[in-house]
Design a protein around this nucleic acid. Structure first.
Lengths: 237, 237
DNA sequence: CGAGGGTTTGAAGTGCATCAAATAGTGTGG
DNA sequence: CCACACTATTTGATGCACTTCAAACCCTCG
C-alpha cells in the first residue's frame, strides 16, 4: 500500500508498529460522487484519510435541512474524533468529488495514540489548528457579508506562496460552495456578481481569475480580525 | 493553594509532579469586571482556570467590531492552546463577571503534556468536545432564528439532571448574551419577547422562568440536528 | 439531440440591523 | 435614604441583505 498519504500531520511521528499495522489493515478505495461513507450517530469503526477527491462532512435536521460541518480536500483526515466520543460519528460523510479514500480501523490509531506521546501531541496541534479555523469561521459568518465571504474563500484557494494574479477553479459545485459559506445558491450567484463588480475579478463558469489580489483582500478582509494571508488557515478549508 | 479547581477535566490524570509545580507557580487572583487578561496575538506565557466568575474570549477588527469566541463559566480553562501556536494568543480575554482566576505558566503544562500521555489524551478528549460544540454553534447560527437560538441557550442553562419547571437567571448582561448568540441587543430584546409569546416563558429582568421545558425545546430544537438535551453540550457554553 | 441537473435571473417577502429615542435599572455621593 | 448620572434595556421606524418561490437558461453527458 502507498504510504505517501501518511507523510502528513499528524502522522510524521507515528511509530513503525503503526505503519506496519496500516500496511495490514488500512484499506484504499476509489469512490464515486455521492457515496456516503458513514452517517451521523452511526457506530464508528474507522477513520479516513483523503488521498484524492473531496469529502463533505455534514449533519441534517429532521426536515432534511443540511448543515455543512466541513468540506475537505486531499491530505486531510476525518472521523478520528470518534476515538473520544464512544465511537459515535459526530457527523455524516459524503464523497462530493470522486477520489481515493483510505479507511483505517480506529483501533490502530487508538493503540498508537495511547502509546506514542509524540503522536498525541501532533494530534493536539492539529486539533488546535482546526479549532482556530472554526473560531474564524464563526467570525466570518457573523461579520462578513456574502460577497466578502466569497472573496475570502477565493483567497484561501490561491497558492499563498505565490503573489501576483492567480487563476483558480472552483473545486466543487457552486451550490456546495454556497452551502459551505452558509448561503443559498441564488445568493451565491448574485454575491459573486457583486464581488466581480467591486474587485474586478473575472469569472467563466467554474474558473475565476483574480487579477488583483490586493484589491480583493482589501475588500474581503476589511471585516475580519486578521488580514490576508489569514495565518493558520489552510487553503480551501 | 486550593487544588479543587483542578479536580476537573482534563486534569484528573495529571501527575504529582504537575500538582507540585502548581503549588509553587500557579497564581490565584480576584479580578474586577472589565479586566483584560491578555490580548489577541500577545505573547502567551500562562494559561488560566476559572474558579469563579465569567470570562469572555473575543477578537476584534480594525474598526473595533468585536466577535465573541466564547464565554466561559467557572470550571473552564482557556489559553492553553497557545502551547501549540508558538505561544501566540489566538484571542483576547476579558473578565465579565468578577471572580477568581488562576494563572499557570504554560511551561508547566507543556512539560506535563509531553511526559504524561494520559493528560494528553484527556486534553484531546476535551478538545474534541469543544470542537463539536463549535460545529453545533455554526449550525445554530445557520439554521436557527433569533428566538430559537435564545431558547436553546436557555435550555442549556438549565440543570439537565432535573426535569420540570426551571428558574434561571442570566449569568451576564443581556447585551453580552446577545453578542454570544450573534445578534444585536435590540434583536435580542425583541426575540426574547417573541419567545415568551411562543412558549409561555416568564421574564422578569434577568430572571427567566421556564414552566414548560418540552414546549421550549420543541420550539427551539426543531431547527437543529440534535434534540434536547443536546448531548455533549455543557451548560452556558 | 434530448433529459436532467446546475446556475442564473426576476419578483416578492422576511428577519435582522440600524438609527433614534424613551424607559428602566443601578450605583454613587451627599 | 434620596437625587443624580450613567448604563442597560426596550420600543419605534426604517432600510437592507438575504431568503424564498418561480421560471428561464445553460451545460454536460448519455
Amino acid at each position: 500500500m502507498d504510504m505517501s498519504p501518511f507523510q502528513i500531520p499528524p502522522f510524521q511521528n507515528a511509530s513503525d508498529v503503526f505503519f506496519k499495522a496500516l500496511q495490514e489493515h488500512a484499506h484504499s478505495q476509489k469512490y464515486k460522487k455521492g457515496k456516503i461513507l458513514f452517517v451521523h450517530e452511526d457506530r464508528a469503526n474507522f477513520f479516513y484519510v483523503i488521498q484524492t477527491g473531496w469529502v463533505k462532512l455534514f449533519r441534517e435536521t429532521i426536515d432534511g435541512t443540511q448543515s455543512i460541518v466541513d468540506i475537505l480536500p486531499a491530505g486531510h483526515l476525518f472521523g478520528e474524533t470518534a476515538l473520544f466520543t464512544q465511537n459515535l460519528s459526530p457527523y455524516s460523510a459524503e464523497v462530493i468529488e470522486p477520489g481515493i479514500i483510505i479507511s483505517i480501523p480506529l483501533k490502530i490509531l487508538k493503540k498508537e495514540v495511547e502509546s506514542n506521546n509524540k503522536l498525541a501531541l501532533d494530534m493536539l496541534a492539529s486539533m488546535t489548528r482546526y479549532r482556530h479555523q472554526q473560531d474564524r469561521e464563526i467570525e466570518h459568518r457573523t461579520i462578513q457579508n456574502a460577497p466578502q465571504r466569497i472573496g475570502c474563500f477565493l483567497l484561501r484557494l490561491t497558492d499563498q506562496n505565490k503573489s501576483g494574479p492567480a487563476i483558480i477553479h472552483l473545486p466543487y459545485d457552486k451550490t456546495l460552495v454556497a452551502a459551505r459559506l452558509g448561503m443559498q445558491p441564488e445568493t451565491f450567484s448574485r454575491a459573486l456578481a457583486k464581488l466581480k463588480e467591486k474587485t474586478g475579478i473575472r469569472i467563466k463558469g467554474a474558473t475565476v481569475e483574480l487579477n488583483n489580489l490586493d484589491q480583493l483582500s482589501q475588500y474581503s478582509c476589511a471585516a475580519c480580525s486578521s488580514e490576508f494571508p489569514c495565518k493558520d488557515l489552510q487553503a480551501a478549508k
